[in-house]
Design a binder for these strands. Structure first.
Lengths: 224, 224
DNA sequence: GGCAAAATGTACGAACTGGTTAGTTTAGTC
DNA sequence: GACTAAACTAACCAGTTCGTACATTTTGCC
């Protein structure tokens, strides 16, 4: 059931474009899956929005689930590549942490489609993520930044001891993820559009502050 | 489109039981929708698991979406009723806040089905929640606790000024909601079962501490 | 008991949907 | 230019799924 062999495109003038077709299908599929879920997305609908055809979806991805997994992998890869752009080298621990939280907040905000894919994957108890060996590898470094920053902060004596970097990552993720994932119900229930620029600006500031106040030693709090 | 008239059951010997049938259908439907989503849930499957039949689903709820909205309303009502049991009257602000966060953490943890319904509803951009006037009314008091606790804490001089109770509620919700909603992907990606009792115990403690450190004045932090 | 309304059981159908079968075109290779 | 494998098209199929038509039983009420 292996896919087609990846052929390096030697000549740009070709009416056939395997990689392009494949990528185009994945992008359309990601949109549809993120919008409607795995069961809700329609293969015919995806095919129609593609530059290609339904037949090609089955040609490249086997079945609906195969397409979903590929779209999921693609989403993770894209987002992780974006995250790699964060550079906090050489910054003081508190500044680096602030930067990390701001970056995560903005990054999640900008990648709503990815957030929705993760939501959907959680609805499915992450069974497709489990099926994909690719994704796990992409994420082992996701926690590297926190670990480095925390270690430096400890050494500098500005962070409290005894915290678990993974738990800190969990908390930052929770605040930044929820901001996108639950915006709809939260806004409807409380009659306030928490997605509006002003509200986001405020939530962003409070999120940063919350994380800093959690990490920074009491006696150093005056400086943040 | 009104439902059947609520008939007080005078005689215990009756083969027909409208309210019971209705409730039974809603409970089964909630399970299925929470598990598979709106599109993923199957009416026939729901019907089969019911004490009743498919015919009765359409008799009482009109169509699939009507059933979904009813299940959603039921989930919100149940959870809000549970939340009403929280009593922090007369407690010192810091203790009350700690209690509130612990309660919210546990409550979300215990109502995974509800969390999943909210996730699904967010996937649908909360359009069914919007359609239901019932749910909005149920939530206006959801923020009352925070407001009261924060006001008292300000008066007592133990909380920082200038915070928005709704934003605090947002933060508490984020931490407690994410803990349930994203457990699957988080556990898979980092190879650590964050749902395990020990992990939950730790996350619970850190969540409480994070919220307290955000609200409590710097110079009062020694006491928490 | 008679009656209307509510509640329920059975069987069916039309549309949708994932997936396939069969065949055609394009491009690299000798 | 013939040949082969990859890339692609179009029509089709079979199982599923929501929803309904029709018949029947139960219940409250006089």
């Amino acid at each position: 059931m292996g896919g087609p062999v990846s052929t390096p495109k030697l000549k740009p003038t070709r009416t056939q474009d395997p990689e392009g077709t494949r990528q185009n299908i994945i992008e359309v599929a990601a949109q549809e899956f993120a919008l409607n879920g795995l069961a809700g997305a329609r293969i015919d609908e995806i095919a129609a929005k593609t530059r290609s055809s339904k037949r090609m979806i089955y040609y490249y991805f086997g079945d609906k689930e195969g397409l979903y997994v590929s779209a999921l992998e693609n989403a993770y890869r894209q987002v992780r590549e974006g995250e790699a752009k964060l550079d906090v080298e050489g910054m003081a621990p508190i500044d680096a942490l602030r930067r990390l939280v701001e970056f995560t907040f903005d990054h999640h905000h900008q990648h709503e489609e990815f957030i929705r894919m993760v939501m959907i994957e959680n609805i499915h108890h992450a069974e497709y993520l489990e099926r994909s060996g690719v994704i796990r590898d992409l994420n082992v470094t996701a926690i590297g930044h926190i670990e480095a920053i925390y270690a430096k902060g400890l050494a500098d004596g500005v962070f409290r001891a005894g915290l678990d970097p993974l738990e800190v990552h969990w908390q930052i993720s929770a605040l930044c993820f929820f901001n996108v994932s639950n915006r709809a119900t939260f806004s409807k229930i409380f009659g306030r559009d928490v997605g509006a620029p002003a509200a986001q600006e405020s939530l962003r500031r409070q999120t940063v502050e919350m994380v800093l106040r959690f990490l920074v030693k009491d006696e150093k709090l005056g400086g943040i």
